[in-house]
């Protein structure tokens, strides 16, 4: 059983309009981190919204933890699939951090006593427990996103989707969010789907799904993906700096043993290269 399974899903927003997703099939296993990447308008957010019943497929089938998604069970599905959106401000409902994390719990009729425990523990997981009574305008974008993640964690979902949740943050904030989510995901064996159009952010994922014009371009592991620099550039994706540097070195006749995927690996490759000589 997969955490999420798309079977030949096609989707268009209106009849007569072109399909924005064509014949999309893929699976996400429990505890797996799948990154979805693609140029603007390639259909990434549409996929995300299909996953928790904010949209329904025009054709094809979506199965979440063995349950086929339909109008009757969207509430159960939404309890299992938590979603964090791009704009930190436009998903903060409560007047304080505590009230915002409570929102999802209140919606599901969780008793008050239990709410308190769940709020504290999910805020601890994103290290925001000291901000319980803060209002949103006193939080940075990154802090608001962490509260949004806590709000999702509080309902103990089995899958978390981040739809460009780090796009409006600075590099440090981005890294913090990704580290936090990765940590929680690994600890609780959650399915994690991160949507981005920055290849830097897919390097830690287990698998990458590349979207191009509403179709799956490829599904692979990050290390393999970055080898296809020119092809990626053709579909509007820039490879990370580390990869570009490795390619540039190659052109100069310096070949590294293995394609590095982050700064650390690049450093290792460089200094071992030197000592190999």
């Amino acid at each position: 059983m997969y955490a999420i399974e798309f079977k030949n899903v096609s989707f268009r927003y209106e009849e007569e309009q072109p399909y924005v997703l064509r014949n999309v099939s893929f699976q996400v296993e429990a505890g797996e981190w799948l990154a979805i990447i693609g140029h603007n308008g390639s259909g990434k957010s549409t996929i995300a919204k299909l996953m928790n019943g904010l949209l329904f497929p025009t054709e094809g089938e979506i199965i979440i933890n063995g349950i086929p998604l339909n109008e009757e069970n969207i509430w159960e599905i939404r309890r299992q699939v938590g979603m964090v959106f791009q704009n930190p401000d436009n998903q903060f409902v409560g007047t304080t951090v505590r009230d915002d994390v409570a929102f999802g719990l209140e919606n599901r009729g969780v008793p008050r006593a239990e709410m308190m425990d769940r709020i504290t523990s999910s805020l601890e997981q994103v290290r925001m427990q000291d901000y319980l009574l803060h209002e949103p305008y006193r939080l940075s974008g990154g802090q608001k996103q962490r509260v949004a993640i806590a709000g999702v964690l509080a309902i103990s979902p089995s899958v978390i989707i981040l739809d460009e949740a780090t796009a409006m943050l600075d590099p440090l904030g981005r890294k913090e969010i990704l580290d936090t989510v990765h940590h929680v995901q690994a600890a609780q064996q959650l399915g994690l789907i991160t949507i981005t159009h920055d290849l830097n952010e897919v390097m830690q994922a287990h698998r990458v799904l590349v979207m191009n014009d509403g179709e799956i371009w490829t599904t692979t592991v990050p290390r393999e993906l970055v080898k296809r620099q020119t092809e990626l550039q053709q579909i509007g994706l820039d490879v990370p700096f580390v990869t570009q540097l490795a390619h540039a070195l190659e052109r100069q006749g310096i070949t590294l043993d293995e394609q590095p995927i982050d700064h650390e690996e690049l450093l290792d490759a460089l200094w071992t290269l030197h000592s190999n000589k």
């Binding site: 979603m83 704009n87 009230d99 719990l105 599901r108």
Partner: peptide, 21 residues
């Protein structure tokens, strides 16, 4: 966007809702 986020977080009106405050 807020309406979308609220729906994704399981908001379905006042029925069956509990309150933190």
């Amino acid at each position: 966007e807020l309406a979308m986020a609220m729906e994704a977080r399981g908001y379905r009106g006042g029925e069956g809702r509990t309150k933190l405050r």
